[in-house]
Design a protein around this nucleic acid. Structure first.
Length: 888
RNA sequence: GCCCGGAUGGCGGAAUUGGUAGACGCGCUGGUCUCAAACACCAGUGGCAGCAAUGCUGUGCCGGUUCGAUCCCGGCUCCGGGUACCA
């Protein structure tokens, strides 16, 4: 019988649909549950690319396997459908974004369904559906009404916020101000990145290092705009400690840790000479205070202008102006060479009451720490560079731990910077009573902090790189904020029962140049009047695309619920997500934002787990072959021909080099899953994506490889659908039985560990064995089809039917490994002399060391090598190897 | 610059994490089938030497630990990802 994949796949996809084979069980009493989630896609107009099915197939195999293991499996799919492309298209053509979105979702759904993925389609969600974003808005209201109790390290309702007495006495406005300063969501003037091309603000995270917008590649500018912000740094500690019990790749945890950027140190107050003011700095090295020879404040620091003396006013003003220009130009070029100007003003070093000059320089950042530093050029490379350039004194206060006497003296003389450990010198003062001489770095830091706190000149402090999250966009196609700005400046949020706040219909989608959302044109929608006649205006910004994806995994649990975000009983049953697979490009942002929201919901008692995603896995990107000529210029794939394994330009005949590159339209090397499904079938596509290599590595697509797995499936079908290959008897031969159980064990272990490539290889090995044998029993066929079914479900269903079963294989129990069958009674020992393998010898498994030695030495083949020297030592590792050490 | 990965045949990759390097697949070579080709099937396939048995060599490079290293340690080279003066 021929392997007619087209017919088979259509047939079973229809069967699964009609029989609701993959509907999530309602029964919440089964203690075995498994929530398997894909990062849901943004449905772009281009349709699916081969990268999508990679992760989807992996989760599908896992889900199908878990069902067969008796688990209740939740495996849903949906659409992260708010986003810029649909809106850009609307600007160009006038087509409503919802129209574009609907079409794209239809395409994605059709394509995904053609892969035979076992999603419960009754749970499909779409972030642009008002029934969905009603709850996104609802969560925003929760964020707004929550403050973070730092003592308890926990978010709490603002109704529980204690207002200090002095504020209570200052009146209603002050109270509001105080409460607003505590809310997790706040509305404020902020210096934000603005992309003139997209006419949108970007969060810090969305601006690339060269100052360009991640989405469009154009340069961004700074703008001062009123925006919604979320106080994510308050959760920094929780976000860091939450990793402990998560099965995530170490690399991703590390990236998030770096992003959060925790550093410990101290804040130190310096008195500014001639002012009744203090300049507070953050430092990780309070131990080096004696080496502070000058200070630097950022150009944007509020004190900069105030402390500048008349004599230096002009140069400082020039410098500030130049610095503000720089941030709008290319910021990377200026990254190397230090610049700065003297303010004319001095500060007093608290440890020795010495006067040190205060400079302005842009190597000190406004947004980090206090926006000012104490500079210790002898022990900080940046400060050292600056001091060299401007001839500022370098005072070494640490005898470095270094053997090289020349380097040691260079450091001692202040000619070289030393940032490592050593013993402090010149670090005491009788008047202030501090002495850390002879201590090392760690002890010095501890003692100095103690002194700072005792004298009230500073305190221990933890700082984070993580900043407040800019949470609004000047766009139409996003969730509207449930917010009203009243004419008296008051802000109120809609009541829960007023949700969802839907988007108004618009004629034009073009945002204003000045940072106004297109919603500003929706007059009727925009204006509101309350019962007392007070007029207000709705928030015209919308939420960023992250919003919908921050919590979608929760909605899948109970997607149809109109009265609550979800049923808590169901949430308790299904959470956390047991396996979450997606691309590493979301390693920081999506996962960090999502964890943040989840923790807030946890603190408010809305969800039952502290972390949303228990096990995370990142699939590697799928690349494609591309070609370049001798000059390194890329050549479009349709101009390439292959001769004898070498590549040439069809038109010019010039030799080309095959390289691996991202798939791109311009290189014409994009692989469309639809084409692969048509040519080889969905099972082959699935199998190939898994067989290419480990799930997490980057790998190039090779059409020839698809043929390889197709051959395997075709051979499988031919062999097992042929009744002549099935023995009438019940007794299976021992070699087949052993091979079969080896395969079960390997496939099972590999699925658990997401190592699908080797699982497939194990099944290939078994098929080769069976074909060679010629005949196997019905039971063997049944078992093999079962272990193949998560990988190639259509083929498996068809073969299952051919064996005479009338129900789907999807819920059949997974076969048990019989360990007895796997026991070896004979081991093939490699025998090596001086570590070099010389021959192998088959010996019974239960021989002891002496017996093994005897047998090996008695072997005829050993003599040849024994004659070349005298035996020094014989190493026998039972069931592993024998190594004989000879001395010549 | 810093942080995190990685480097194994012609290619994708495998190796119980210290114990027979190259599983499985692709490609290639030879054979069977065919008028022929494709498909399918059988056999071979890291490199060098040899008719062969076999020997030497071999996991990016240099060195070390060990009876034994793709795996551990030290020092490099190259590639990929993240990050950008974070005090």
């Amino acid at each position: 019988m021929d392997y007619n994949f087209e017919e088979i796949e259509k047939k079973w996809q229809r069967y699964w649909d009609e029989n609701k084979t993959f509907r999530t069980p309602d029964d919440l009493t089964n203690p075995k549950k498994c929530y398997v989630l894909d990062m849901f896609p943004y449905p772009s107009g281009a349709g699916l690319h081969v990268g999508h099915p990679e992760g989807y197939t992996a989760t599908d195999i896992y889900s199908r396997y878990k069902r067969m293991k008796g688990y209740n499996v939740l495996h849903p799919m949906g659409w992260d459908a708010f986003g810029l492309p649909a809106e850009q298209y609307a600007i160009q053509t006038g087509t409503h974004p919802s129209e574009t979105t609907r079409k794209n979702c239809d395409t994605f759904r059709r394509q995904i369904k053609s892969l035979g993925l076992s999603y419960d389609w009754e749970r499909e969600i779409n972030t642009t559906d008002p029934k969905y974003f009603k709850w996104t808005q609802w969560i925003f209201i929760k964020l707004y009404n929550t403050w973070f109790d730092e003592k308890l390290q926990k978010g709490r309702p603002v109704s529980e916020l204690e207002i200090p007495d002095n504020i209570m006495k200052s009146g209603k406005d002050e109270i509001t101000k105080y409460v607003d300063s505590k809310r997790l969501a706040y509305y404020d003037n902020a210096l934000v990145w603005w992309c003139p091309e997209c006419r949108i603000v970007c969060s810090n995270e969305e601006v690339l290092y060269d100052g360009s917008h991640e989405k469009c590649g154009n340069k961004v500018e700074k703008k001062n705009l009123k925006q919604w912000m979320l106080r994510i740094p308050l959760y920094a500690e929780r976000l860091l400690s939450g990793f402990d019990d998560l099965e995530w790749p170490e690399g991703i945890k590390e990236m998030q840790r770096n992003w959060i950027g925790r550093s410990t140190g101290a804040e130190v107050d310096f008195i500014i000479e001639g002012f009744d003011r203090k300049l507070t700095v953050f430092t990780t090295r309070p131990d080096t205070l004696f080496g502070a020879t000058y200070m630097v404040i950022a150009p944007e620091h509020p004190l900069t202008k105030e402390i500048t003396t008349d004599e230096h006013r002009e140069s400082v003003a020039d410098y500030i102006r130049a610095a503000s220009m720089k941030s709008e130009l290319d910021r990377t070029d200026l990254a190397r060479e230090k610049s700065g100007v003297f303010t004319g003003c001095y500060a007093i070093n608290p440890v020795n009451r010495k006067k040190i000059p205060i400079w302005v320089a842009d190597y000190v950042l406004t947004g980090y720490g206090t926006g000012a530093i104490m500079a210790v050029p002898a022990h900080d490379t940046r400060d050292f560079e600056f001091a060299e350039k401007f001839n500022l004194p370098v005072i070494c206060i640490m005898d470095p731990d270094v053997d090289d006497p020349e380097q040691k003296s260079r450091v001692r003389e202040g000619k070289e910077c030393w940032t490592e450990d050593g013993r402090f010198i010149n670090s005491s003062d009788e008047n202030t009573g501090i002495n850390i001489n002879n201590l090392n770095k760690e002890a010095g830091i501890a003692l100095m902090i103690e002194w700072l706190e005792k004298t009230g000149t500073g305190k221990a402090k933890v700082n984070y790189k993580l900043r407040d999250w800019l949470f609004s966009r000047q766009r139409y196609w996003g969730e509207p904020f449930p917010v009203i700005h009243w004419e008296n400046g008051e802000i109120t949020l809609l009541d829960e029962n007023e949700l969802p706040l839907k988007l108004p219909e618009l004629e034009k989608y073009l945002p204003g140049d000045s940072g106004e959302s297109p919603l500003a044109n929706a007059d009727e929608w925009l204006t509101v009047t309350d019962s007392s006649g007070r007029k207000g205006r709705r928030e015209t910004n919308t939420m960023p695309q992250w919003a919908g994806s921050c919590w979608y995994y929760l909605r899948f649990i109970d997607p149809g619920n109109d009265s609550r975000i979800f049923d808590p009983e169901k949430e308790k049953y299904w959470m956390p997500v047991d396996l979450y697979i997606g691309g590493a490009e979301h390693a920081v942002l999506h996962l960090l934002y999502s964890r943040f929201w989840h923790k807030v919901l946890f603190d408010l008692g809305i969800v039952s787990t502290d972390e949303p995603y228990k096990r995370l896995f990142n699939q590697g990107m799928i690349l494609a072959y591309a070609y370049e000529n001798e000059l390194g210029a890329k050549v479009s794939a349709d101009l390439v021909e292959e001769r004898n394994g070498k590549y040439y330009n069809k038109e010019t005949g010039a030799p080309l080099k095959q390289i691996v590159a991202k798939m791109s339209k311009s290189l014409k090397n994009v692989v469309n899953p639809d084409d692969v499904v048509q040519k080889y079938g969905a099972d082959s596509l699935r199998l190939y994506e898994m067989f290419m290599g480990p799930l997490d590595i980057i790998k190039p697509w090779d059409d020839k490889g698809v043929k390889g797995v197709f051959n395997f499936l075709a051979r499988t079908f031919r062999f097992f659908s042929n009744q002549e290959n099935i023995t009438s008897g019940k007794e299976e031969s021992t070699d087949i039985l052993k091979g079969l159980h080896q395969a079960i064990r390997k496939v099972e272990g590999d699925i658990e560990n997401l190592r699908f490539n080797t699982a497939i290889s194990a099944m290939m090995i078994f098929l080769n064995l069976a074909v060679k044998k010629g005949k196997v029993t019905r039971e063997t066929v049944n078992i093999f089809i079962k272990i193949l079914s998560p990988f190639a479900p259509h083929l498996a269903e068809e073969l299952w039917r051919i064996q005479g079963h009338d129900r789907s294989i999807a819920h059949e129990p997974w076969p048990e490994v019989n360990e007895e069958l796997l026991k070896e009674d004979i081991i093939e020992y490699p025998v090596s002399f001086n570590g070099k393998l010389r021959f192998t010898i088959e010996l019974p498994v239960n021989l002891d060391k002496d017996e093994i030695t005897k047998r090996v030495l008695g072997d005829e083949r050993a003599r040849k090598w024994l004659d070349t020297g005298t035996v020094v030592k014989i190493i026998v590792v039972p069931q592993r190897i024998v190594n004989i050490v000879l001395k010549k």
